[in-house]
């Protein structure tokens, strides 16, 4: 039998095992439930306001406008007198649009919804990928499998391939389902699907991100031989990056270079086709030290390269470990 047919057969077998797993089934159902529940919030946002809502919002607007008329001149003068700039001290006049007296634009609602589903799918893919190989180590069935199919790299490739394909399929279904449902609700409420192409592109970019997450979970669990250890690594990263991210807020500090290399910023940049993050620059004058916010950009190309390199490094290093490591 040719190597190609061996690969295909093993890949199909691993996919069958993956979709037969209870973890996969539960994760899939939870994702579908999350998408369904989120439509309740979407429905709120895309439906035109009711008469009572309009009345209530009008009341809030009137109050705010009245407050502005009475106080804005005095407040702005006080601010300028205390050294504030014209821009900083401006108190813009409230407008009816500020009080959401119209339905939210489709692009905003759908964009938020798809980003949410992208992150939820990412987490699910990570967990399913980790438990897929972690369970094999913990039950010892990997050793059993290797006595039947001893070609380690072939076995490894089929397992990674199964995780990649399953993650891609799940992400495509969940993200485009989310987009489709938001579009449907928007149309039901008479809204226009302005910006549909952009949001669809975001949903499309969420697919490789889910694949990355699935492979990351798989690789961590393979290296540690345990699902929980892989989840621990992910949790540890969240904690460490939270601390380091805070320290990296100072653009000129020792960790000022870090934000473009944090995973979460690159997920964001990949999903949104480029994103921004904020740092501050400290300025010392005679009156003291003040911080000025600066916005920095992470391009899509940067994040794509970042993830491609990490993917290759992770897959190759795990393959080398899997090929050589004793299986007990």
């Amino acid at each position: 039998m040719s190597a190609a047919s061996d690969v295909g057969r093993l890949l199909v077998t691993e996919l069958r095992r993956l979709v037969s797993r209870r973890v996969t089934l539960v994760a899939g159902l939870l994702l579908l439930a999350a998408v369904g529940l989120f439509q309740l919030a979407v429905n709120e946002q895309v439906s035109p306001p009711t008469a009572s809502q309009v009345t209530e919002q009008q009341r809030y607007f009137d109050q705010a406008h009245q407050e502005w008329e009475q106080e804005h001149a005095a407040q702005e003068k006080q601010c300028l007198d205390s050294g504030g700039s014209q821009t900083d001290c401006a108190w813009p006049e409230p407008t009816p649009a500020d009080y959401a007296l119209t339905a939210s634009p489709f692009a905003d609602v759908a964009g938020t919804a798809v980003q949410l589903s992208a992150y939820v799918t990412l987490l699910a893919a990570f967990f399913v990928g980790a438990s897929f190989i972690g369970a094999e180590y913990s039950t010892g069935s990997l050793a059993n499998w290797l006595t039947f199919v001893p070609r380690r790299l072939l076995v490894y490739g089929s397992k990674v391939g199964a995780v990649l394909l399953a993650s891609a399929a799940a992400a495509a279904v969940i993200n485009f389902l989310m987009l489709g449902l938001v579009a449907l609700l928007t149309r039901v409420h008479g809204g226009d699907l302005v910006g549909l192409g952009g949001v669809a592109a975001t949903a499309g970019r969420a697919v490789p991100i889910a694949c990355l997450a699935g492979v990351a979970g798989f690789v961590f669990a393979l290296l540690t031989r345990h699902t929980v250890a892989a989840l621990g690594i992910a949790l540890g990263y969240v904690l460490v990056s939270g601390v380091l991210g805070g320290l990296a807020g100072n653009a000129e500090g020792p960790l000022g270079w870090l934000p473009p290399w944090l995973a979460e910023n690159n997920v964001d940049a990949f999903l949104k086709h480029g994103s921004t993050y904020t740092q501050y620059v400290l300025t010392t004058t005679e009156q003291g030290t003040s911080g000025t916010e600066v916005e920095k950009h992470i391009s899509f190309g940067h994040s794509a390269t970042y993830w491609a390199v990490l993917l290759v490094v992770a897959v190759v290093s795990a393959a080398l470990v899997f090929r050589r490591r004793d299986v007990t």
Binding site: R9, L10, V12, T13, R16, R17, S20, R21, R22, A135, T139, G140, S141, A143, N144, W145, F148, V149
Partner: peptide
């Protein structure tokens, strides 16, 4: 060493497919 949550038949079917 088999997958504990799968039936005996399912375990063997996966092996056979592999």
């Amino acid at each position: 060493k088999f997958f504990p949550a799968f039936t005996a038949r399912r375990n063997l079917e996966l092996l056979a497919a592999g």
